Amino acid sequence: MKNSIVIVDDHVLIANALSSIISNFNQFEVSYICENGLELQEKFKNSRIPDIVLLDISMPIMDGFETALWLKNDYPNVLVMALSMQDDEQSLIKMIKNGAKGYMLKNVHPRELESALNIIVEKGHFFPAWATSKVLTTLSDDGIEASSKIKISDREKEFLKYTVTEMSYKEIAEKMFCSPRTVENYRDSLFEKLELKTRVGLAVYAIKNGYEE
Score class of each variant (00 low, 15 high):
residue 1 M to G: 12
residue 4 S to F: 01
residue 6 V to I: 12
residue 6 V to W: 00
residue 8 V to W: 03
residue 9 D to M: 02
residue 9 D to L: 01
residue 13 L to W: 00
residue 17 A to R: 10
residue 18 L to A: 07
residue 18 L to Q: 09
residue 20 S to R: 09
residue 20 S to Q: 08
residue 21 I to Q: 08
residue 22 I to A: 03
residue 23 S to D: 12
residue 24 N to V: 02
residue 26 N to D: 12
residue 29 E to T: 08
residue 41 Q to D: 09
residue 42 E to G: 08
residue 44 F to P: 11
residue 45 K to I: 02
residue 50 P to M: 02
residue 50 P to I: 02
residue 52 I to W: 07
residue 52 I to P: 05
residue 53 V to K: 13
residue 53 V to Q: 08
residue 55 L to S: 13
residue 56 D to P: 04
residue 56 D to V: 09
residue 56 D to L: 10
residue 57 I to G: 10
residue 58 S to H: 11
residue 59 M to G: 05
residue 61 I to K: 15
residue 66 E to A: 15
residue 69 L to W: 13
residue 70 W to R: 14
residue 70 W to Y: 15
residue 71 L to H: 12
residue 72 K to S: 09
residue 74 D to F: 14
residue 74 D to P: 12
residue 75 Y to P: 14
residue 76 P to N: 14
residue 77 N to Q: 15
residue 82 A to Q: 12
residue 86 Q to I: 10
residue 88 D to A: 11
residue 89 E to R: 10
residue 90 Q to R: 14
residue 90 Q to N: 13
residue 94 K to M: 06
residue 97 K to V: 07
residue 98 N to Y: 11
residue 99 G to S: 03
residue 100 A to Q: 00
residue 101 K to I: 00
residue 102 G to S: 04
residue 104 M to Q: 02
residue 104 M to I: 09
residue 105 L to P: 03
residue 107 N to Y: 00
residue 107 N to G: 09
residue 107 N to V: 06
residue 108 V to Y: 00
residue 108 V to D: 00
residue 108 V to M: 04
residue 109 H to C: 01
residue 110 P to C: 02
residue 111 R to C: 00
residue 111 R to Y: 00
residue 111 R to P: 00
residue 112 E to S: 11
residue 113 L to R: 02
residue 114 E to P: 01
residue 118 N to W: 02
residue 122 E to I: 06
residue 124 G to C: 05
residue 124 G to N: 07
residue 125 H to K: 08
residue 128 P to M: 09
residue 128 P to D: 06
residue 129 A to G: 10
residue 132 T to I: 08
residue 133 S to L: 07
residue 134 K to Y: 05
residue 136 L to G: 08
residue 137 T to I: 10
residue 137 T to G: 06
residue 138 T to F: 15
residue 139 L to Q: 14
residue 142 D to L: 15
residue 142 D to F: 15
residue 143 G to E: 04
residue 143 G to C: 09
residue 144 I to N: 11
residue 144 I to M: 13
residue 146 A to N: 14
residue 147 S to Q: 12
residue 149 K to I: 01
residue 149 K to S: 03
residue 152 I to N: 10
residue 155 R to G: 05
residue 156 E to H: 15
residue 158 E to M: 13
residue 159 F to C: 11
residue 159 F to I: 15
residue 161 K to P: 03
residue 161 K to Q: 09
residue 161 K to D: 05
residue 162 Y to W: 12
residue 166 E to D: 14
residue 168 S to D: 04
residue 169 Y to P: 04
residue 169 Y to K: 11
residue 171 E to T: 07
residue 172 I to P: 00
residue 173 A to T: 01
residue 174 E to R: 13
residue 174 E to C: 02
residue 175 K to T: 11
residue 176 M to C: 01
residue 179 S to G: 06
residue 180 P to F: 01
residue 189 S to E: 03
residue 189 S to F: 00
residue 190 L to G: 07
residue 192 E to A: 04
residue 193 K to H: 05
residue 194 L to E: 02
residue 195 E to F: 03
residue 195 E to L: 06
residue 195 E to Y: 02
residue 197 K to A: 06
residue 198 T to P: 01
residue 199 R to Q: 11
residue 199 R to G: 06
residue 202 L to F: 08
residue 203 A to V: 05
residue 203 A to W: 07
residue 203 A to N: 08
residue 204 V to N: 04
residue 205 Y to H: 13
residue 205 Y to G: 05
residue 205 Y to R: 07
residue 205 Y to E: 04
residue 207 I to H: 07
residue 207 I to A: 05
residue 208 K to S: 04
residue 208 K to V: 10
residue 208 K to H: 07
residue 209 N to E: 05
residue 209 N to Q: 08
residue 211 Y to W: 14
residue 212 E to D: 14
residue 212 E to H: 15
residue 213 E to Y: 10
